[in-house]
Amino acid sequence: MVDAAVLEKLEAAFKKLQGTESKSLLKKYLSQEVFDKLKTKKTGFNSSLLDVIQSGVENPDSGVGIYAPDAESYSTFSDLFDPIIEDYHGGFKKDAKHPNKDWGDVDTLPNVDPTGEYVISTRVRCGRSMEGYPFNPCLTEAQYKEMEEKLKATLDGFQGDLKGSYYPLAGMTKEVQQKLIDDHFLFKEGDRFLQAANACRFWPTGRGIFHNDAKTFLIWCNEEDHLRLISMQPGGDLGQVIQNSWIYFGL
């Protein structure tokens, strides 16, 4: 059960949303009935409906308008998440299952720019979350630091093609910053939609970038997802990048 202060903010947020010309999926599916059903609920991480909707309320030009503050939110606030997910993905119902992965025959994928005239680099990436932590909108400063330390401990054990260096954003020198910019590796603080969702708090604490020595495997720590794993290399050889991702991502 949320406390009175959160409930008061929720009521004000819902009223504000209804008074906008927003065409977001949030406004489309957050009816009075759904709002009344969900407004007093919270997850095991103490995330409330306010954490879910605050970005869409502050940014009425949002297309979707919601963020999940933790994994439990998808079930706790399913009356809002399920129809939005189904609408956004064009029919992915709440009982639907992800299909088995099928990469096809990557050996048949051509290099789309064999002469190197147009494609600077090619990348494949996936997002992963650390179990036991909420998502960025509800992470504490201590959790950001703890997650970064756990990642660094794992990275220290990488050998062979995976061996590389981790660069924390906090305290980063201008020389390192420019190096990562030149390599197109550096990420910046999030946009206004993420900021309104509280996904950028304590920046740059707990954020950083890892890349292997060959600069073909990257990990972004707490940029938007907990982890973003990236396989990339110069040029347009998509098949090679995908094959490398199987190794880097453990697929």
Rank of each mutant, 00 (worst) to 15 (best):
M1C: 12
D3W: 02
E8M: 04
A12T: 15
K15N: 14
L17R: 03
T20D: 08
L26I: 07
Y29E: 03
E33I: 00
D36P: 00
T40D: 15
T40C: 12
F45V: 01
L49F: 07
L50W: 12
I53Q: 03
S55Y: 01
V57M: 02
P60Y: 06
S62K: 00
Y67S: 08
P69I: 02
D70R: 01
A71C: 03
A71L: 10
S75H: 12
F77V: 10
S78W: 07
H89L: 15
K94R: 15
D95V: 14
A96W: 06
K101Q: 15
G104C: 09
T108F: 02
R123T: 09
R125D: 02
M130A: 11
P134H: 09
N136K: 09
L139R: 15
E141P: 03
E148T: 11
E149M: 10
G157H: 14
F158K: 06
L162D: 09
Y166C: 03
L169H: 09
M172L: 08
K174A: 13
E175K: 07
K188L: 14
R192V: 11
A199D: 04
T205S: 14
R207W: 06
H211V: 03
N212T: 11
L218T: 11
I219N: 04
I219S: 05
W220K: 07
E223M: 00
S231R: 04
D237R: 11
G239N: 08
G239V: 06
I242A: 09
N244C: 02
W246T: 00
Y248M: 10
F249A: 11
